[in-house]
């Protein structure tokens, strides 16, 4: 009962603020609503008892990436940017991609409608005590079964970071 209340609350907030994020003309307002969407998604993760993903979402997306977004938006002259027509040539592409994604989600939901806990049915939340500790389980998989992909991903990030530093460095 309570799980459903929380789910619908977070899902509603996420969808509503996602819509507002797209429709606002002011970039900072859009950023605020994007932050709200990300927080609501984090709430859904928490409701699924995925604590680590919940806090990773907050720390990385909200506390890290969005801060940089807002930082960059503040450095742009908004009044000038507002008068420019942006991205309008992509309208039909965007429509096509949106419809394709909606179709995909619809097919997925429809095909799994009979499977309990999937499709249109809301998952029945398991009591927290019965689940293994989330962080430990994730760390175990990450550093055991998927060690090589994990290391490759971190090397890739390191390369990107070094590349950014080299590009930002003054040429003397």
């Amino acid at each position: 009962m309570l799980d459903k209340v929380f789910f619908f609350f977070f899902a509603g907030v996420a969808i509503l603020s996602a819509g507002l994020m797209v429709t606002r003309r002011n970039a900072i307002h859009s950023a605020v609503f994007l932050i709200t969407t990300l927080m609501a998604t984090a709430g859904i993760f928490l409701q699924l008892r995925a604590e680590f993903i919940f806090i990773a979402q907050i720390i990385l997306y909200v506390g890290g990436i969005m801060v940089l977004f807002v930082f960059v938006i503040m450095l742009v002259r908004l009044d000038v940017a507002l008068h420019q027509i942006q991205f309008s040539r992509q309208k039909w592409v965007a429509l096509f991609v949106t419809l394709a994604l909606a179709l995909e989600v619809g097919v997925m939901l429809w095909s799994s409608r009979k499977v309990p806990g999937q499709g249109f049915l809301l998952p029945n939340a398991m009591p927290a005590a019965k689940l293994p500790a989330n962080t430990e389980a994730l760390a175990g998989r990450l550093f055991d079964a998927y060690l090589l992909p994990f290391e490759i991903a971190s090397v890739l990030l390191l390369v990107a970071m070094v590349g950014a530093v080299v590009m930002a460095k003054k040429r003397t």
Binding site: I28, V32, I35, E51, F52, F54, I55, I58, I59, V62, G63, M66, V67, V70, F71, M74, A133, N134, T135
Partner: peptide, 25 residues
Amino acid sequence: INVGLLFVIGVSSLGLFGIVLGGWA
């Protein structure tokens, strides 16, 4: 909470938005 300390640091760092948005607004 399983991620107690991360929760404390992560959520308290969100206060930064108050500063940034307030300064801009």
